[in-house]
């Protein structure tokens, strides 16, 4: 194992997004703040409570999760695609680094961004709404797992994509709709039965409900199921990302 090389790449990936924090950290905080103010405070007058929780508090775990997974995905996918398009990748591929080391370093970089963004929105929620956190350790573990899983997925997307347009398509047509349909702003019990059934095949539904349980103690799905789903996604995406990197698909000829 090339530990110094591995550590250097992690440092680069983390340093990269911190160096442009106005693009990578602040927007999530601002948009989450706006969701809380606009959706939460205005809709709370019409939807007073869901599952015994005030509406503003109800949406907060979903916002944390959306912020976590979009940032984790964006970090790895954009960094990998950028390195491909700007001719930086040969520096890594000709260095004595294995596919395992490169993929894990990218995933860790994306995980750090996901965790930082998730925790900042959590702090914002506590600050703005007195959000109670029932199980802080569980919340942090969940944020970490989801960050890791979606950083891995982002790496796969970044390696497969050949243009910014393709990457944007994958994020806008799949990730964002799945996040919104996963129950950020509503309980699926408010949906007709057929729509509830559809939600069960949306993996992000389990992520949102898992973190909602650790923060508020309520959720549409069983916490155990959500937790196992998070672990399952982490294992599947991590393995796929490592295998794809080792195969050299789309990055080596």
């Amino acid at each position: 194992m090339n530990w110094i090389g591995f550590g250097t790449l992690i440092k680069r990936e983390v340093g990269r997004f911190f160096s442009v924090y106005r693009q990578t950290v602040l927007p999530g905080l601002i948009s989450s703040g706006l969701y809380i103010v606009i959706f939460g405070f205005t809709l709370e007058q019409r939807i007073s409570e869901i599952q015994g929780v005030p509406y503003t508090l109800f949406i907060l775990p979903g916002l944390i999760m959306m912020n976590t997974l979009t940032n984790a995905t964006a970090n790895t996918s954009s960094s990998m695609l950028q390195m491909k398009l700007l001719q930086q990748l040969p520096d890594l591929l000709t260095a004595p680094l294995s596919g395992l080391e490169i993929s894990l370093a990218y995933i860790i970089g994306g995980t750090v961004r996901g965790v930082v963004n998730g925790i900042l929105v959590l702090i914002l929620g506590v600050f703005l709404t007195d959000l109670p956190v029932v199980n802080l350790l569980g919340t942090i573990v969940f944020i970490f797992l989801v960050s890791w899983a979606f950083a891995s997925m982002g790496l796969i997307l970044g390696q497969i994509a050949e243009s910014w347009d393709q990457l944007a398509m994958m994020q806008n047509f799949f990730l964002t709709p799945l996040s919104f349909l996963g129950g950020i702003f509503y309980s699926i019990k408010m949906l007709p039965e057929w729509a509830q059934s559809l939600s069960f095949i949306n993996p992000i539904y389990y992520m949102i409900n898992g973190i909602r349980y650790t923060i508020l103690g309520v959720s549409d799905s069983s916490f155990i199921v959500s937790f196992w789903m998070a672990l399952f996604l982490t294992a599947i995406f991590t393995t796929s990302a490592i295998l794809l990197m080792q195969s050299g698909e789309k990055i080596k000829q």
């Binding site: 090339n2 110094i4 090389g5 550590g7 250097t8 790449l9 440092k11 680069r12 340093g15 990269r16 160096s19 442009v20 700007l86 001719q87 930086q88 040969p90 520096d91 890594l92 260095a95 004595p96 680094l97």
Partner: peptide
């Protein structure tokens, strides 16, 4: 081919490059 990097000064890039090789 020249590579392009938007994020770091060239000194930092050289330290990264050295790091990839275990220095």
């Amino acid at each position: 081919e020249f590579s392009v990097d938007w994020f770091f000064p060239i000194e930092k890039l050289l330290y990264f490059q050295a790091g990839y090789y275990g220095l």
